[in-house]
Design a protein around this nucleic acid. Structure first.
Lengths: 123, 123
DNA sequence: CATACTACTATCCCAAAGGATACCGGTATC
DNA sequence: GATACCGGTATCCTTTGGGATAGTAGTATG
C-alpha cells in the first residue's frame, strides 16, 4: 500500500468521480475542445471556423457553438456591417480550461509516442 | 493581443488539436475515467466494481474493462482458487493519467460551483 | 438579372454508444 | 436437489452523435 496524502474512502472517490463526470459532460463530443483550441487564436467568423476545422458540417458547427455559448466559453458578436458579420470569441471563463487542455495535450503526445514506439518493437 | 511564449501558427494549433483528440479518443465514453478512479483504490473483482459504480451493466463493464486492458491501463489477473477469482488492477502506465485526472477534477469542481452560484443569483 | 458569398436552418439518415433483460457454466451452501 | 454467488455472454432495443445534402434570406458583384 502506498502512502497517500488523502484518505481514499469510497466517499472521496465518489466525489472525484462526480467532478470528473461534470467536466466530461461539458466537454463531451468530438468538436468542443478542438473548437476552443481553434478560437484561442482570436475571434473568428462562422465560415472561417468551418474552413479551419475541415470536415465539420455547418449543422454540427452551429450546434457546438450554441452549446459553447450556453456554457459561457464562447461569446457570439454580431456587427451590423453590410453584409452582417458574426464573430465568435473565447470568454475569460474559457481560460480556466487552459490547464485541462494542456494536460490532455501533454498526455496525448506521450501516449502517441508510446504507441508509435511499441509498434516499432513489435514489427 | 496577449504576450505568448509560443507562436500560435495554424500548424502549432493543429498539433495541439491532434494531441487532444488522441487523448479524448482513448478516454472516450461515460465510464473509462470513473473506472480508473475506482480502481485507484487497489485491485477489485468484477462484481465488486459493478457494485461500486452503480448503474453499469455487466455488458458495458466487460467491454470497458477490455478496452482499458488493450490500452494497458488495467491488468486482469486470474487466480485459480475455487471458485476462480479474477481481479482488475491499474498498471504503472495508468499513473501517467494522474495529472489529467486531477485537472479534470479541479475544473469539474470549479465549474459546478460556478453553476450553483449563478443559479442562486438568478432565482 | 444571374451568380456568389454569408450565416445559417431543415430534413433525412446511419452508426455507435449504451442500457434492459435474460442467460450461461461452474462452484458452494443450505 | 434448490438456491445463490461469480464472471461474465447474448440478444434486443433506444438514444445520441454526427454526417450528407439541400435550401433559406439577405447582400453584393459582374
Amino acid at each position: 500500500m502506498e502512502t497517500k496524502n488523502t484518505v481514499h474512502s469510497a466517499e472521496v472517490c465518489n466525489r472525484h468521480v462526480v467532478a470528473v463526470k461534470d467536466a466530461l459532460y461539458v466537454l463531451n463530443g468530438k468538436w468542443k475542445l478542438p473548437l476552443i483550441i481553434a478560437l484561442s487564436d482570436g475571434p473568428m467568423r462562422f465560415n472561417e471556423i468551418q474552413r479551419a476545422l475541415e470536415d465539420i458540417t455547418p449543422k454540427i458547427l452551429s450546434k457546438e457553438l450554441k452549446e459553447l455559448e450556453l456554457n459561457e466559453f464562447v461569446e457570439r458578436k454580431v456587427f451590423s456591417t453590410t453584409p452582417v458579420t458574426v464573430t465568435y470569441e473565447l470568454t475569460p471563463y474559457s481560460r480556466t480550461l487552459d490547464q485541462v487542455i494542456e494536460e490532455l495535450r501533454n498526455w496525448g503526445q506521450l501516449h502517441r509516442e508510446r504507441i508509435v514506439s511499441s509498434r516499432k518493437i513489435k514489427s
